[in-house]
Write a protein that binds this DNA or RNA. Structure first.
Lengths: 143, 143
DNA sequence: TTAATATATGAGCATGGGTTCATCTATTCA
DNA sequence: TGAATAGATGAACCCATGCTCATATATTAA
């Protein structure tokens, strides 16, 4: 309350959301338990790490991509087969594969006209499985 | 190619994105490796599961929420302290806490005016940690 | 009761993102 | 060479979402 309270109006250049920077000031919040906060503050991940981590989860945050990942968990597939298996258009799959490629979750090789996609490593599948575990967990205890 | 190919125009009622239903037809994709697809198709997660799973990852797909989660990994905190520690406004934190509450990632108890939030279970933290592992993994092999 | 305080919430804004559609590229085959 | 085919991609549409701002609610204190 005693800290500067009219800094609100100083807007900065609007950044693309996922390159946002940590806000550098607080003006309307008073810390109630400063000792507690001081201790925990150090243990929180920094903003940059949080942004990078959020990008990983963001890729996993779409049902179509998750189904693609679960398909690829079984083996290498081409775009056309993925589209057929998941009832998606070739274009939609291709767009999604780019997202997965860009974020390094899949690798691909070209064989003539056919592009074969596969999971890049098992880290992805671990995340996927862990997510399913959580799903199971929460549906167990639903009221 | 021989299957119905002019069903495209039959648009259905536009659903909220995260209640989307699996498209029921394909009209522009031919399966190249039908045997392969037939085998893998059964192993892919169904649409409903994919949607539920995506909702979990969606909650983890925001830097602010991830920092809140990492803070709460250390112990119970009130809104005010979280806001102070992470340089967020009280309102922004409160909105995020609602998302976390709704998705059952945190539980909270009220003590007078103060609302104490804590992680609901360690599944969340496992996902979080696994994500950090993946981050470490991919930054190791960057070119 | 009145003031102060901790939190919750609705509206509105600006941006993000997944799909379709149209089109382009590259490869294979006749 | 020309047609067919697998895939990639840019534009546009429409919905999702995280924030701010203003305000409401509830609890404590004077």
């Amino acid at each position: 309350m005693s800290m500067g309270s009219s800094i609100h109006s100083s807007k900065r250049a609007p950044l693309p959301r996922h390159q946002r920077q940590e806000p550098e000031y607080v003006c309307d919040v008073e810390c109630i338990h400063p000792d507690l906060v001081a201790k925990l503050e150090k243990n929180a991940i920094d903003w940059e790490t949080a942004v990078e981590l959020s990008q990983i989860f963001r890729v996993m945050a779409d049902p179509s991509r998750l189904r693609i990942i679960s398909l690829l968990g079984e083996g290498e597939l081409c775009v056309c087969d993925i589209a057929s298996a998941l009832n998606m258009t070739q274009s939609a799959v291709s767009h999604q594969m780019r997202v997965l490629r860009t974020s390094r979750l899949v690798r691909y090789r070209r064989e003539g006209r056919v592009a074969w996609y596969a999971l890049d490593d098992d880290h992805v599948l671990k995340l996927f499985t862990q997510g399913l575990d959580h799903l199971q967990h929460t549906s167990d205890e639903e009221d």
